[in-house]
Simulated assay, not measured.
Amino acid sequence: MNHKLDTPVTATGPVAATPSRSSVWKQRGASWLVKGNLLIVFLVICAVAAMLSPEFLTVRNLSNLLQQSSLTGIIAVGMTLVILTSGIDLSVGSTAALSGMVVAIALDGFVPVPLAILLALLVGAALGFLMGSISAWLRLPAFIVTLAGLTAIRGLAYLTTDGKPVGQNLPESFTLLGGGYIGYIPTTGIIFVVVALLAACLLRFTTFGEYIYAVGSNEEAARLSGVPVKWVQASVFALSGLTAAIAGVLLTSRLTIAQPTSFQGAELDAIAAVVLGGASLFGGRGGIGGTFIAVLLLSVLKNLFNLMGMGSFFQMVVTGVILILALILNKVLDVRRAN
């Protein structure tokens, strides 16, 4: 039976149709102001960076910037889907690290490249689905479940090779996936754009995308409207695990070696980008476009700091301040919309 959002039911039966589709679009449109302002800020910072450092607009630097932002961006795309349902996934960094280890171990065992990549992606998606299922069906906070997953999955990454790097002799056809270029454009950047476009189309043109916004806006109303809430929640975590696995595979490909210590803190960078992009941590508002701009904005800031010789500690402080300011802005917009 195909349940539609615009034909809700109550516990006793169907009721009059409500403009839930319009409500979904209203929730999507609420972040347009944030994205517009964010785009302006991004362009201004790019202009300032170009004036402060003549190296900023060089082809080599812009190519490096896209490559450096792509892995965080891919993870942030999956995180956006989770946060839109009012969830959060703290296990993505560990999942990316484990998936990178899995593909390297498989390739060292002479598994064909496509099959090794598929295996790593399946591991990531399965771990995400497990986290989401535990949270959804046992009604446990996603924060706690994925925090436990962060530790347990990272432990698995260490156990796979007793904490040692693996994959010193990866095939060249695989290393080109994460370390190659098409012209001056890194392949990782192209994959980031493709993943973002696919996720944007999922949210905008599919019923599942409407379900994601509906669950994040009002879980109980979505359930009464026939939305399979628990399956939606578990599925977005599976997609988050999948995007984390893609990032893990690409990093292993780019470095030509898999490190169990990789992607530490990646979940915080992804959450910062999603929130800065206008998504509400309470769910129901945000989109891939805002996340995409925010990822580039944070990367430009880090790139500018590096060109100016500023240390990583200072960069951490600035990232934290930006996240706090984004949360304050989201709160102000929530209050204005409520009034």
Results as ranks from 00 to 15, higher is better:
296 L>V: 09
297 L>M: 12
334 D>Y: 06
286 G>A: 09
285 R>K: 13
290 G>A: 04
172 E>R: 08
192 F>R: 03
331 K>C: 00
55 E>F: 12
292 F>G: 06
6 D>G: 06
221 A>C: 07
28 R>G: 01
33 L>Y: 12
119 L>R: 10
265 G>C: 08
127 L>R: 02
166 V>S: 15
29 G>Y: 04
236 V>P: 05
127 L>C: 13
3 H>T: 14
302 K>R: 13
127 L>G: 08
293 I>V: 15
318 V>G: 05
27 Q>D: 14
155 G>C: 11
146 T>D: 03
133 S>Y: 10
133 S>T: 15
115 L>H: 02
252 T>W: 09
231 W>A: 06
97 A>P: 00
130 L>M: 14
16 A>I: 10
232 V>T: 13
295 V>C: 09
287 G>H: 07
187 T>Q: 02
35 K>V: 15
219 E>L: 05
56 F>M: 06
119 L>A: 15
250 L>T: 02
226 G>V: 09
26 K>A: 12
122 L>C: 15
161 T>C: 01
33 L>V: 10
273 A>S: 13
67 Q>P: 05
256 T>C: 12
102 V>P: 04
189 G>H: 07
292 F>S: 04
221 A>M: 06
210 E>S: 15
27 Q>W: 10
194 V>H: 03
62 L>Q: 13
172 E>K: 14
230 K>V: 01
215 V>C: 11
4 K>G: 14
299 S>C: 08
61 N>Y: 08
61 N>R: 04
145 V>L: 08
275 V>W: 00
318 V>W: 03
58 T>I: 08
81 L>P: 11
213 Y>Q: 04
198 L>E: 07
100 G>H: 03
185 I>N: 04
299 S>I: 04
137 W>S: 06
164 K>M: 14
6 D>C: 06
244 A>E: 06
97 A>G: 01
237 F>H: 14
42 F>H: 00
119 L>I: 14
287 G>Y: 02
107 L>R: 10
159 L>T: 10
280 S>T: 06
293 I>S: 07
103 V>M: 09
14 P>Q: 00
51 M>Q: 15
67 Q>E: 15
82 V>T: 03
219 E>Y: 11
32 W>N: 11
120 A>N: 12
339 N>W: 12
207 T>M: 09
17 A>C: 06
8 P>D: 00
227 V>F: 11
305 F>C: 10
225 S>E: 04
172 E>P: 04
12 T>L: 15
323 L>S: 07
336 R>W: 11
315 Q>W: 03
